[in-house]
Structures are given as C-alpha cells and as structure tokens.
C-alpha cells in the first residue's frame, strides 16, 4: 500500500483531460507590481507610508539617532511598563540593548525554557526587513531568535535599521530569496501589527494570543 504512488497515479490520470486553457502562465514580478498597491520609489515617501500603516495597525515606531539614544528610549519604555524581565537573542543590536536595561535577560540561544520565556515582559528581536506597503516586519527564526521569542511575551520590541525598509512585498520576497538562497530558516514570518482578533462580533481586540504591543525602534 503506497498511497504516494496511488495519489500520483490518480493525479496523472485526472490531468489527461485538458482543462479550458487560461493563457498567460505564471505572472512576472513586474506584473504583480502593476496591480498591487502602489508604493513610491522615494525613501522618504516609503518611510511616511510605513509610519502611516503602523499607526493604523497600532504598532509604535520610535526613531532613534544612535545606540545611546536607543538605550535611553528603551529604558523609558521599561519604566513606563514596569518590565521586570526581558528576553532577547544573540544579535548585534538586540543583546547589547537588552543588557543595558539592567534587568534579568533570558537569551534564547542555543535553547531556553519556554515556561521561563512566558514570564518575560518583552521579547527583543531584530528583523530581516520592514515593508512600507503593508507596515509589516519580516522576521525569521535566524534573525529573531527562534520562533517563540517574537510571539510569546506580551510585548514584541523590534530593533531595525532604517535601511532595512523596503518598498513592497515583492521586494521583500526577492530579498529573502537572495539572502537565504537554498538555506532558508525554518520559520519566516511577516508580522503586521500586534496580535489581534475580530472573532467576537467582528470587534477588534489586540493581544489575542501573541503580543498585545508591538514597538519598532528604528536606528
């Protein structure tokens, strides 16, 4: 009993009957861009669009000048929300910033206890890209310290560099292909705003299962 063979046999048999044809073949990226929401090619305009989309999504953007400014503003967030413990991963920006807070830091590499992560007030990660078109943050298990760090703690804090902003989804995907080639991380996620649900009377509630708050620091 080899179901794989059986299924393929049925598929090949079924496809012998030709369907009404639909000309065109697979669309090109240029064709995709031609129909999708327009995004300006200017960096400033893209930045403005990213801001506007984030505001609508209720994600917070904090612009910071340099690492010192980042640490000051992160400390302000710590105080405002009364963080007692944070989690981060090994990354140029994330680890130093997390350690500058003067709080216990759970580091997800090379492995960690999920119960402990559940007690952290914030998960601090880096990202692969920011997408102006949709206000999304692109993370992977490699750039953001695994799968749970950006999802389990109630506040997801992202530290990004301004030049990580890309215009649109097609660009973000192209970048992924270029960056990782054949060797993709096991998880790739476009995060678009804090976790939400509309399952009760279609009324928006934030923080359904994932983070209630999403803050993006832009260096």
């Amino acid at each position: 009993m080899n179901e794989r063979e059986n299924i393929f046999k049925r598929i090949r048999e079924a496809l012998k009957a030709p369907a009404h044809s639909l000309a065109g073949g697979l669309p090109t990226v240029a064709e995709q861009r031609g129909v999708m929401p327009a995004v300006s090619s200017e960096h400033e305009a893209q930045m403005a669009l990213f801001h506007a989309n984030s505001a609508e999504l209720r994600a917070h953007i904090v612009l910071v000048a340099d690492m010192r400014d980042l640490e000051t503003k992160m400390a302000a967030l710590r105080d405002e929300e009364g963080w007692k413990k944070v989690a981060a991963h090994v990354g140029d920006l994330s680890i130093t910033t997390a350690q500058s807070l003067g709080l216990p830091v759970l580091i997800t590499h090379p492995g960690f206890d999920k119960e402990e992560l559940a007690t952290c007030d914030a998960g601090i990660t880096e990202c692969d890209a920011l997408v102006a078109q949709t206000g999304s943050v692109l993370v992977t298990s490699r750039s953001a310290g695994g799968r749970a760090l950006s999802c389990l703690p109630p506040h997801h804090v992202i530290i990004a560099r301004r030049e990580q902003l890309v215009a649109d989804l097609p660009t973000a995907f192209e970048q992924l292909v270029q960056k990782y080639g054949g060797n993709y991380p096991s998880m790739i996620s476009f995060i678009t705003g804090p976790s939400r649900t509309g399952d009760i009377e279609r009324i928006l509630v934030l923080g359904a299962h994932g983070p209630k708050h999403l803050t993006i620091f832009m260096v």
Binding site: G111, F112, S141, A148, M187
Partner: peptide, 16 residues
C-alpha cells in the same frame, strides 16, 4: 497579522 512560512523542524542553528 501573521503570515508565516515553515520549511522544516528546528534546524541545527536555531533556538527553538
């Protein structure tokens, strides 16, 4: 909100 792609189990260099 989340569009996530999974290509395998935890890989050698991954945290979880």
């Amino acid at each position: 909100c989340y569009n996530t792609m999974y290509g395998g189990p935890r890989q050698a260099d991954e945290a979880d």
